[in-house]
Amino acid sequence: MWELLKIELLKIFRRPRTYIAFGAITAIVFLVQLALKLDGKSYIDLLLSNLSGSFEFSDEFKSKLLNGYLVCFAILTALLIQMPLLVSLIAGDSIAGEANMGTLRLSLIRPVGRTKYMIVKFLASVIYTIALLIWMAVLALFGSMLIFGTNDMVVLRSTGIDQIAASDVMWRYFAAFGYAAVALTTIAALAFLLSVFAENSIGPIIATMSIIIVFTILSEMNIPFYDDSIKPWLFTTHMVAWKGFFYVKATDDGVTITGSIANLPAILKSLTILLGYIAGFVFIAIWVFRKKDILS
């Protein structure tokens, strides 16, 4: 299994197109950091404008607000919407790309079981996804910490603001990145499933993005019927649950409780649903592939 996985990783990481995603992330993170470095005050004012009616903020408070943790949070919020496209570039290509190149038939006439072949292919896509996320974490979190420094982190919520002590932030980021890895693996699993049905990688990539767009629209619509019956089961509803790690509990006096998470059960439920999707997508992909006639 390990030898096969090494082959798959060699195929992914020796391919120039793999680095398009790494380049895109680098460019976006750099541009956001540059913009906030040059005009961070306007961004903070905009951020606080919704709350300014009920709260008053001192200039000292505002100056502390723009730090590496908040910048990373802003980057993650923006980038995790774009990441599915970058993930599907590789996962959607994993089987369809081989079929298109004509290497699928050469691989499947070797003494390797189709189930094993699929598992290895999927694991390679997951490793790529995690590598992409680690790259983003290094640039967005550690890069922003270097550029903007660290301080307490303030998170805006519809109910007000949560202030998290600087010493209480880092583990939340690790948890959030871990959750994001599962969320993006769900996308990888979907693209991987669609890849089984196609003989070129464009189809699965476009189909993956189309499904995400439709599901996201459904997730965002405020229609009672959808709220109760459909939204809770759409994977897109649970993709952004990583933010829950930055929502904290507070005492009756309004003081945030260090190490707390406002709604851990909701995060765990979302995580379970995403894991269910991953298992379902991969199981169907393997089941279909085992029966498939290879005509490419």
Partner: peptide, 20 residues
């Protein structure tokens, strides 16, 4: 015989040897 065009000849051969 379509192969991995972005890899060298010997890398392609090693891949299929390992898979065998």
């Amino acid at each position: 015989p379509d192969l991995y065009k972005y890899l060298t000849g010997i890398e392609n051969l090693r891949i299929f040897a390992t898979m065998s």
